[in-house]
Design a protein around this nucleic acid. Sequence first.
DNA 1: GACCGACATGGACGCCCGTCGATGCGTGCG
DNA 2: CGCACGCATCGACGGGCGTCCATGTCGGTC
Lengths: 126, 126
Amino acid sequence: MTELATTHAHPLEDDCCPGAQGRLMPRERAEDLADVFKALADPARVRLLEYLAASRGGTACACHLPAALGITQPTLSHHLRRLRAAGLVEGDRRGRWVHYTVRPEALDRVRAYLDLPTDGAEDRCC
Amino acid sequence: MTELATTHAHPLEDDCCPGAQGRLMPRERAEDLADVFKALADPARVRLLEYLAASRGGTACACHLPAALGITQPTLSHHLRRLRAAGLVEGDRRGRWVHYTVRPEALDRVRAYLDLPTDGAEDRCC
DNA sequence: GACCGACATGGACGCCCGTCGATGCGTGCG
DNA sequence: CGCACGCATCGACGGGCGTCCATGTCGGTC
């Protein structure tokens, strides 16, 4: 279904919520954030990111991770690919091994979102 | 596939990483975090949570959200159910409407995870 | 140059998820 | 009491994701 009014004032007025406003986060920003959350929505990737962050300089090679995580090498490669696509890590080749590094910028965007006040001032309806 | 050694020291020793340790986050904790991230891994739910947080007291009724989000009422109910299952929101019935409230505790756990140092001290291999 | 090891890619399978329409349930109103 | 309304649930459909095996690709080594 297509996107409906986010700034429309009229359809939000009725007997239930006379003065309510439907201010929502822009769709594009919500999709970007959801993409990062999707990249984190797997136990293996949660452990991977924490493992890299706990390494010196946020960098480590992935050579032994399949055995440690209990997954095969293609599956690990798939997870690292998803983390890379989300901008959470980056990898550079050093000889025959690839080292992966945490990119804190993407994490900062997520942190900024999660710092929502949980006690806003907008008066809602009903 | 079943979980393999996380504290095992032996299989992680070879010519590549002589002294490397494979310390990983416990599997259960990673699954719990991943469940919360799964609950956030959708644009509609990202907007929903931000909408609730921007409301007075972190509470709002959901009566007009289907139209604002461009989804049907069953779909909105499905998303709110997932947010509730993840402990991110809770809903109580007031008359014929249901009000949803943000529960900051679940967000705190996620924030604590995302505060990973990105410059750890553990020396990794290769 | 031929082999080997680390990693990426492709294809296949099963499962979960987002979305919908239709329906059921509970509450307030007339 | 019956109707209308807000919300939850059910069943179905399509798409995406995690996982694997098999294979390809690139860099080092001998």
